[in-house]
């Protein structure tokens, strides 16, 4: 989604009622973030909204990007936020061979996850289609990509091929390189 470098649009302040709505939405979508929500979006703070191309809006607090949203899709955390709270998001792992493709913006395909270096969650905490997950990489500590799944994890295990995620936010893409000062 952010393969090209972005030019940010107008920056505007978020209404406090909307900000409250965002807070509840975040807690709802990412229950594990709830303990940290005051740290991410302090109650009395002022969020900013930056419009990006392709109807993406990005929420910023104090020049740290927090979440981005494409139209009315779920809020997706910026990678800097994921790096700060990696345990708050469901994680899948890709094998080493897939990293370089992911970092150059390819769509994520199932074999990268089902192979030996990859890892999918067990059946009890499977992720469904449309869930927002963080992608970590074999042999690395940090997350390299976030986005919405196109295929449930159980289905991946069964099928073993096809598109898993496209239009995600990955390390080194336009959104990552953006400067908000």
């Amino acid at each position: 989604m952010f393969k090209k470098d972005l030019t940010p649009g107008a920056k505007s302040k978020v209404k406090s009622s909307v900000q409250r709505a965002i807070r509840t939405k975040v807690v709802e979508t990412y229950p594990k973030l709830a303990p940290y929500i005051d740290e991410i979006i302090p109650k009395k703070s002022q969020l900013d909204l930056v419009k990006l191309p392709d109807r993406v809006s990005l929420y910023i607090h104090d020049s740290t990007p927090l979440f981005w949203q494409h139209m009315d899709d779920p809020l997706i955390p910026h990678l800097k936020l994921v790096h700060a709270f990696p345990q708050a998001f469901p994680r899948l792992r890709i094998d080493r061979g897939a990293i370089r493709f992911v970092l150059s913006g390819a769509t994520l395909m199932a074999p990268g996850l089902t192979s030996k270096g990859g890892r999918l969650p067990d059946k009890e905490d499977e992720c469904k289609e449309g869930d927002v997950v963080a992608i970590e990489a074999e042999g690395k500590e940090e997350i390299c990509m976030v986005g919405q799944l196109k295929m449930g994890t159980e289905q991946m295990k069964g099928k073993g091929k096809g598109v898993v995620m496209d239009g995600g936010h990955y390390l080194g893409d336009g959104l990552w390189k953006m400067n908000f000062d």
Binding site: P35, Y36, F85, G172
Partner: peptide, 29 residues
Amino acid sequence: ATDNVPGVSSESQARNVIYCGVCTLPPEY
């Protein structure tokens, strides 16, 4: 990968990740 990530970040504080000054990615990337 699995051991380090939850270990470092179980406190309520956000983790402070170092980013490379040249390419802006985390150094391992």
